[in-house]
Write a protein that binds this DNA or RNA. Structure first.
Length: 903
RNA sequence: GGGCGGUUAGCUCAGCUGGAAGAGCGCCUGGUUUACACCCAGGAGGUCGGCAGUUCGAACCUGUCACCGCCCACCA
């Protein structure tokens, strides 16, 4: 016997273990392959090994699991390929912090090899956290295939791609300005930089002309938000059209403090309208200035070391006392000294945009360094084309625009990181700096000795690759590439990629580029990694703010699972996953959908109590009882809606369809309607009804399973204990197929029953009829069909509307409340209960309301334009509506007369 | 500056191809109807942001304005 309420916490673990024990998640099941099942593949967006499950993961993986469970039940050979990402910076950070907390020697003191051992040890110990959390959510990944971006095989793939792209000229080394993170002391890519508006200042300084005034101008005023960078200025630029400075171009100014002479140059970059119109050019510490300096052959003068501390070089001529001080200390010092020297002109407060490292949270310093780059522009071309041609489609479609926008303006991708944790760059340097890129050291040595004609010592590049470099290979590296494995053959290309829009650039774009460059289809043409990219919303808090630890508005999915169960959380996320909108998640929604679980639980309990047991070879197409025919049709309609919803990635609609079916049709009406039959003594009808109820519940469990896998599996098992043995666990049960079960007469009949009962209930409530009172009903002007329906559903109507005797007659009893339904008028004798004048008022206002409808329709129909231009069926519909409304009004007027006659 | 999205019930949001405004939560009124109070029944509540247009017909299409988000690029 089922308990009164569902207790998720007790069961979820047990059910998950049972699925795993039955090997339900594994791809390539022999039975399916033998049956010719087509593959269906999703690769998981690999969470960081350091990660723990947040709401975004929960949504993302929930949607993937819905697709996977759905296709699995539809008979496909599904592979949900799981794994984790080594997450370079994040992981290194975690371990370094740990060393600090334990007061152990830091990374540098420890040395590379020992430190990496520590990171691996950490990974072995704590790296599985998020995987276990995914399991708690119910994710049915093929865990036997779990991969890690630094696995041997995946590292092999990274190595091969790097070497191949290098040899093709698509990877190269370059010295240019990069975004430098002074905390992690590494370069980061443009995408890892976040522009933030902060309160800042804009100062104005004067640089005096070396050779004295020209046109009466003795000094040139420059503006800066970063005074310390003036020490590295290589020029002052003015716009060539700026009349004020025309005669100054080519002259030298004296750079205070550094005491260098720098030229005034003409360049298109300065805006004559802004400030003084003159811009100081610090080519080594500003991206715009870098371009100006390059164009004009102005030297780039570095000012800082890897921690953004000032350096003193013959080149920059910075005074000794700046050596080693932090850039912000240097700023103060420059301001002070400039003022003392008399070159300080003004300051204003200003909101300025500054670049911050997205992980470190400190201001990024543009630095001139040697780094490795991918020629993204070349790789982007096929990736753009693949989306233009529809080989890969975004859902919703509007994200394609974002993708195109970025891809068409793509910059070289800086892939080297000055970290230790990651894939070390397979490049070796000779004593003269010559580069040898090779799969291993032996190959590099061979290349070097060929190049030099003798053996020379080589040093390996200490840097590692951007984490996203290996992620870009994920859809095929996880399947065994570069080996030509059977899995690669069978499951690539993958089907759908499910992800949030925040990583379209980081990940989706790069997978497209790498996939198209490296993978070929059967015809030898470049193959996309997936045909569909489903972009889901971001999960926000109740007020619409991004959830973040610092704001303290984080809703922990695991806490939700503990409190309400994984199914409740999953259903909430599904029901709210409408396309193109953020999800504002409130706890009350989760609670509400927990109640939905309880509802189906109790419906199952009801069937159990009433011995509604599954019957072998049950045929829903061969039913005799109207109510059963009706529910069979409703099951089919619900199945169609759920199927269509998932197929179209309209998860909220699919969830809504099964919710409405289970609660508002199956529980609210069907179970109530069959109560008389279940308690009656027509054994044949009872048997059919029991079997039908059991079947309809089974179908509900199937349709609900992708959304609420745990409770449905539990009920499937528990209910299965009573009937003939089940063939499979629910997770592997077959998805409903259309069988033409919708029976129009049954549909019309039960639509009528529902309307009759609802009308009567409404009137009872309005008239304050005591709940226990049985009210007789007299039906006037009933046609054949109505008489038959009244007869067939006598018991159900009596129970649901709490009626006394039901009769048909031509005259209404005295003091009746009357309502019109189709051709018939229903009269409830409530003499003594009703207030005749109030009732008259009610009928009159009803007539008035319908009258308004009628005049509206009349206006439409009287409009020549409408009748001639609107489609025939629309016009006909309006005519029909009018006729129906008029018939109702006529009957209401009759009812009114009868009421008056009675008083 | 460029782009994307939003504005519908008190709150959170659906509303697909233009053809009679919807859900959940909340609120109000009833309820010991032998599955379920995590429930049942009934009810109130909307100028679909403003304006203009297209159309026989607009929450939906177009334009425009207002406000609110987000992304990208930024004037030193």
């Amino acid at each position: 016997m089922l308990d009164k309420t569902y207790q998720p916490s007790e069961l979820e673990h047990r059910i998950y273990t049972a699925w795993e024990a039955a090997n339900s998640f594994a791809c390539g099941q022999p039975g399916r392959i033998a049956a010719g099942a087509r593959p269906y593949t999703i690769v998981i967006p690999p969470p960081n090994v350091t990660g723990s499950l947040h709401m975004g993961h929960a949504l993302n993986n929930n949607l993937q699991d819905i697709l996977i469970r759905f296709e699995r039940m539809r008979g496909r050979d599904v592979l949900w390929q799981p794994g984790t990402d080594h997450a370079g910076i994040a992981t290194q950070m975690v371990v370094e912090r740990q060393l600090m907390e334990k007061q152990e020697p830091g990374r540098q003191a420890m040395g590379r090899e020992k430190f990496l051992k520590r990171v691996w040890a950490w990974k072995a110990e704590s790296g599985g956290t998020i995987i276990n959390q995914l399991k708690r959510l119910g994710a049915s990944c093929d865990w036997s295939r779990e991969r890690f971006t630094m696995d041997e095989g995946l590292s092999e793939a990274v190595l091969k791609v790097f070497v191949d792209l290098y040899r093709e000229g698509l990877i190269y080394k370059d010295k240019r300005l990069v975004n430098w993170d002074p905390v992690f002391q590494t370069a980061i890519s443009d995408l890892e930089v976040e522009q933030r508006e902060v309160n800042g200042h804009m100062w104005q300084f004067a640089y005096p002309l070396v050779e004295g005034p020209v046109d009466g101008i003795a000094e040139i005023i420059i503006a800066t938000t970063r005074p310390e960078t003036m020490l590295g200025d290589g020029a002052v630029a003015v716009h060539p059209s700026d009349e004020r400075y025309k005669n100054l171009i080519g002259k030298l100014v004296r750079l205070p403090i550094a005491e260098r002479h720098i030229p005034i140059i003409a360049d298109e970059y300065p805006d004559p309208e802004f400030g003084s119109g003159a811009v100081k050019i610090t080519g080594a510490h500003d991206f715009n200035d870098f371009e100006v300096a390059r164009r004009n052959d102005i030297p780039l003068i570095p000012l800082m070391d890897s921690q953004a501390r000032m350096i003193v070089t013959p080149e920059n001529n910075v005074p000794k006392h700046y050596e080693g001080i932090d850039r912000y200390e240097a700023r103060k010092l420059v301001l002070k000294e400039i003022e003392e020297l008399g070159f300080y002109r003004s300051v204003e407060e200003k909101i300025i945009a500054q670049p911050f490292g997205d992980r470190s949270g400190v201001v990024i310093e543009p630095m001139l360094t040697d780094q490795w780059y991918v020629d993204a522009q070349t790789l982007a071309k096929p990736a753009i084309q693949a989306v233009e041609s529809g080989k890969t489609e975004f859902v919703p479609k509007n994200w394609e625009k974002t993708y195109f926008e970025w891809m068409r303006n793509i910059q070289p991708w800086c892939i080297s990181r000055q970290l230790w944790w990651g894939h070390q760059i397979p490049a070796w340097y000779g004593p003269d700096g010559e580069i040898f890129v090779a799969h291993d050291e032996d190959e590099a040595r061979a290349l070097a000795s060929k190049y030099y004609g003798e053996d020379k010592p080589l040093i390996r590049d200490p840097d590692v690759l951007d984490t996203w470099f290996s992620s870009a290979l994920w859809p095929f590296s996880t399947l065994g590439w570069p080996e030509q494995t059977p899995e690669l053959e069978r499951y690539y290309k993958t089907d759908v990629l499910v992800t949030g829009f925040d990583i379209i650039f980081f990940w989706v774009a790069r997978m497209m580029m790498m996939g198209l460059h490296l993978m070929k289809d059967g015809q030898g043409q470049p193959e996309v990694p997936f045909h569909t990219v489903y972009i889901h919303a971001l999960v926000r808090d109740e007020a619409g703010a991004k959830m973040s630890k610092s704001k303290g508005n984080v809703m922990d999915p695991l806490e939700m699972i503990d409190e309400f169960g994984a199914d409740a959380l999953r259903f909430t996320l599904s029901a709210m996953a409408a396309q193109g909108r953020d999800i504002k998640l409130a706890k009350s929604r989760v609670e509400g959908y927990r109640n939905f679980g309880t509802k189906i639980w109790n419906a199952s309990r009801f069937l159990e109590m009433n011995e509604c047991v599954r019957v072998e070879n049950f045929d829903p197409g061969a039913l005799t009882q109207g109510v059963n025919k009706w529910i069979a049709g409703e099951v089919e309609k619900a199945a169609g809606a759920v199927t269509a919803g998932i197929e179209a990635y309209r998860f909220n609609e699919a969830a809504g369809a099964i919710y409405r079916f289970v609660w508002n049709i199956f529980c609210d009406w069907y179970l109530e309607l069959i109560k008389p039959a279940l308690q009656g003594d027509d054994e044949e009808a009872k048997a059919e009804t029991r079997a039908t109820a059991a079947w309809a519940l089974d179908q509900s469990l199937i349709l609900l399973h992708p959304f609420m896998p745990f409770i449905t599996e539990e009920l499937w098992t528990r209910l299965g204990e009573r009937g003939p043995a089940r063939d499979t666990m629910l997770i592997l049960a077959g998805w409903p197929e259309t069988k033409g079960l919708v029976d129009a007469p049954a549909e019309a009949e039960f639509d009528w029953v529902i309307r009759v009962v609802s009308e009567i209930r409404s009137i009872r409530a309005e008239m304050n009829v005591p709940a226990g009172a049985k009210v007789p009903v007299s039906v006037l002007g009933a046609g054949e069909a109505t008489r038959a329906r009244l007869e067939a559903n006598r018991d159900a109507l009596t129970t649901l509307a709490r009626l006394g005797a039901i009769s048909t007659s031509d005259t209404a009893p005295r003091g009746s409340v009357q309502f019109v339904l189709d051709e018939a008028t229903f009269a409830l004798p409530l003499e003594g209960v009703i207030d005749i004048s109030a009732e008259t008022g009610r009928l009159n206002s009803e007539i008035e309301k319908i009258g308004k409808d009628i005049s509206q329709i009349d206006a439409k129909l009287a409009n020549e334009n409408f009748t001639s231009r609107a489609p025939e069926h629309v016009v006909e519909e309006q005519r029909q509506r009018k006729a129906d409304a008029e018939a109702v009004v006529a009957k209401l007027k009759d009812a009114l007369k009868r009421l008056e006659a009675a008083s």
